[in-house]
Computed example of a mutant assay.
Amino acid sequence: MNAQNTDARAALKPEEFTALAAELGLGTIHIKETSESTNTELANLAQSGEAGDRSVYFTEFQQHGKGRLGRTWLTPQCSALTVSVLALPGKSMPTESLSWYTMLAALAWCQAVGEHTTVAARIKWPNDVLAGDKKICGILAQLVGTPQGFGVVVGTGMNVDQDRSEIPVDTATSLKLANGAAVSRAALLGSYLRHFTALDIAFREVSGDAAAALVNYGSQSLSQLVSTQLATLNVDVRVEFPDGSQLEGVAKTLESDGALLVRDAAGTEHRVLAGDVHHVRRADGKYA
C-alpha cells in the first residue's frame, strides 16, 4: 500500500490489498464494509479450510469487536484499522509458541507507527500498544484448529483518526491526537502487514523459540525485541486475575515463554501468564 493516500477517513482500496498480498505472499484477502468480529469470521474460515496461511480479514466498521474478558467496542467508520491475520506455522513450531503472536503483532505495530508518525509507540503487557500512557491499539489472539493443524488468528484494532470526542475513555487516544497530524491508514496498514510478515517468517525459522536470535534483526531474539519496546518493565503494576485476586509489585522481566515476572513488596517473584495489568501511578502522578 502506498503512502499517497493521506485522507485517513477514505475507505481503503481493494486493489491496494491485492498488490500487497502479491508482494508479501499473503493468503486470501477478505475486505468487508462491516463485520461482527474480524477474529470470529476469520477463525470460522480457517476452521473450514477456506482461509489459508497469512490470510487477512479487514473491516471498515466492526460492530461487535471482542477484547479481553469479553469486552466490546465500536469505532466510527473508516477511523481505525481493524484487521485480523491468520498464522499457520504448521510443524515449524510447537503449539505453545503460538502464544507469542500477540506480542509479535504488538511489535509490528510499534515498528509501523514509528515509520509514519512521531509517536514512540510502546507495548503494554500482554496485549496493548500505547502512545505515552494512553492506549492506541488492542490485540486479541485466539487459537484455532484447521485442516492444516493449529494456527492463531491475531486481531488488532488501531485507533488512527479519531478526535477526542470519539474516544470513549480517558485512558485511550488515537494516532492523530498523539501525532498532532492525520496519518494515512493505507500506509500504516501496509507497514504493519510487512512487519508482521517479516517477524512471522523469522520466528518460524527459529522454530518458535522466542529466545533464539532472529535473522535480519541484529541477532536479537523475539523476546529481546519485545522487551525493548515493553513499557511495563520496571513499572509498579497491579495484576488482576480472572478469579478476582490481585498482585501488586514491580514488573521485572519478560520470560522466555512470555510470562511477566513480578516482584512483590516482600521480594517474592511471581510468574504471571495471564491477567489484566495496570500501570500504577505514583503519588506525584507519574508512572514508576
Score class of each variant (00 low, 15 high):
21 A>Y: 06
156 T>V: 13
243 D>N: 15
56 V>T: 13
195 H>N: 12
236 D>N: 04
1 M>P: 08
234 N>F: 01
149 G>S: 03
17 F>M: 10
13 K>F: 12
283 A>D: 03
210 A>D: 00
245 S>W: 05
13 K>V: 10
190 G>M: 02
224 Q>T: 04
151 G>I: 07
195 H>M: 10
99 S>G: 14
147 P>K: 11
255 E>T: 11
154 V>F: 03
19 A>H: 07
162 Q>P: 01
256 S>C: 15
23 E>Y: 10
67 G>E: 07
190 G>P: 09
159 N>G: 02
144 V>E: 02
114 G>Q: 03
245 S>T: 14
3 A>V: 11
233 L>Q: 00
1 M>Q: 02
125 W>A: 06
118 T>R: 13
59 T>N: 09
167 I>W: 04
237 V>D: 08
77 Q>I: 15
92 S>L: 12
164 R>K: 11
55 S>Q: 12
193 L>G: 04
39 N>D: 07
179 N>V: 04
19 A>K: 02
12 L>E: 06
78 C>F: 15
264 D>P: 02
226 V>F: 07
280 V>M: 13
217 Y>T: 03
201 I>H: 11
162 Q>I: 01
9 R>E: 06
255 E>C: 12
208 G>K: 00
173 T>Q: 08
5 N>E: 12
137 C>I: 05
16 E>M: 11
257 D>N: 14
251 A>T: 00
179 N>P: 09
242 P>R: 04
181 A>Q: 11
96 E>S: 14
118 T>C: 12
44 N>K: 09
133 D>L: 14
96 E>R: 03
124 K>C: 07
156 T>L: 08
62 Q>N: 11
94 P>C: 13
189 L>F: 01
243 D>S: 11
109 W>L: 09
130 L>Q: 06
65 G>K: 05
287 Y>R: 04
109 W>S: 00
152 V>S: 00
86 L>R: 00
200 D>P: 10
258 G>V: 09
233 L>D: 06
45 L>P: 03
229 Q>G: 07
11 A>K: 12
271 R>T: 15
259 A>C: 13
176 K>D: 08
130 L>R: 02
34 T>P: 08
111 Q>L: 13
64 H>W: 00
221 S>I: 11
42 L>R: 04
